[in-house]
């Protein structure tokens, strides 16, 4: 669906994206995982064509053709939910959606129906006539997402869609992403929450300082870069803690339990956080 080839972008002397190459397959959810400032938003802006790469190429593949993202027609294939909320506080939820829908040529009954469906999907039907400026952060995020998918795009770009939202809204957003995925939509999901990437993404691109560090499915990334599981067993009586690095944590735990002298035991399985730590030497939240 999208191919980035050696894409570079700098702001002044500061490189934001440095030779990024990746492909997004049709119908998959690709996660862009990285800390703040990793270059995720810049990458998304170049995919959607609002930023021009200093070097490299971004192409959008649809119907057997390659499109430049600046192609006005190709942009109708893309829905963008930017990190900065793209809403007009003085307009109601319905007015916001109607406006964005009309930019994509939706009019009349079709536009009204699409707005109704989108509001229903993000759980804002009962607030349709309320000004978005009165909404909570989570409600705004949901409305922001609704505006991105109103025109039924093939590709949805979500830039930190759960930033600053409450658990209820986060779950609603997860359900929307899963619903889009089930309909075969292609999604690029940028986040710095590894739990979200693990739950939602078919593949994850780990990005740091504008560079792609790894790209694969979560299990493969974990297996390749996560290291061993850590089994911690606290033995009764002498308060001795046994720490074991292993690829077979259950076997180690089972063996420990068989001694009958175990006060407590934990298994730390490798995850994307560990992958990032191993790849960069830093935590995702640094």
């Amino acid at each position: 669906m999208i191919t980035l080839t050696d894409v570079r972008k700098s702001f002044g002397n500061v490189p934001a994206v440095n030779g990024l190459s990746l492909s997004v397959r049709k119908g998959e959810v690709l996660g862009l995982l990285g800390p703040n400032g990793a270059g995720k938003s810049t990458t998304i802006a170049m995919i959607v064509g609002v930023l021009k790469p200093d070097g490299g190429r971004v192409t959008l593949n649809h119907d057997g053709k390659e499109h430049d993202p600046n192609d006005q027609r190709a942009r109708s294939l893309i829905g963008l939910a930017p990190q900065s909320l793209a809403l007009y506080d003085e307009l109601s939820a319905l007015e916001n959606l109607s406006f964005f829908g009309s930019l994509y040529g939706l009019t009349g009954r079709v536009l009204r129906e699409r707005c109704d469906v989108a509001l229903e999907r993000v759980g804002l039907s009962d607030r349709r006539d309320h000004r978005s400026g009165t909404f909570s952060g989570g409600m705004k995020r949901r409305l922001n997402l609704a505006a991105a998918i109103l025109h039924d795009p093939e590709l949805v770009l979500m830039d930190e869609p759960t930033a600053g939202v409450d658990p209820q809204s986060r779950n609603a957003i997860f359900e929307i992403v899963e619903g889009l995925k089930s309909k075969g939509k292609t999604i690029v999901y940028s986040t710095h929450y590894m739990e979200e990437a693990q739950r939602l993404c078919d593949r994850v691109a780990i990005i740091d300082r504008g560079t792609l560090l790894a790209l694969d499915t979560v299990p493969t990334l974990v297996k390749a870069h996560g290291g061993h599981s850590t089994v911690r067993v606290l033995h009764a009586g002498n308060a001795h803690e046994q720490i074991t690095q292993t690829d077979r944590p259950l076997e180690v735990l089972s063996a420990a339990l068989s001694t009958g002298n175990v006060q407590s035991a934990t298994i730390d399985s490798p995850d994307l956080e560990r992958v990032f730590l191993n790849l960069t030497g830093r935590s995702l939240r640094d």
């Binding site: 959607v48 609002v50 006005q72 109708s76 900065s84 909320l85 793209a86 809403l87």
Partner: peptide, 14 residues
Amino acid sequence: TSGTFLRLCAAPLT
């Protein structure tokens, strides 16, 4: 300075 201009630019608009 808000997200709306980016969003508008992402639509079929220059």
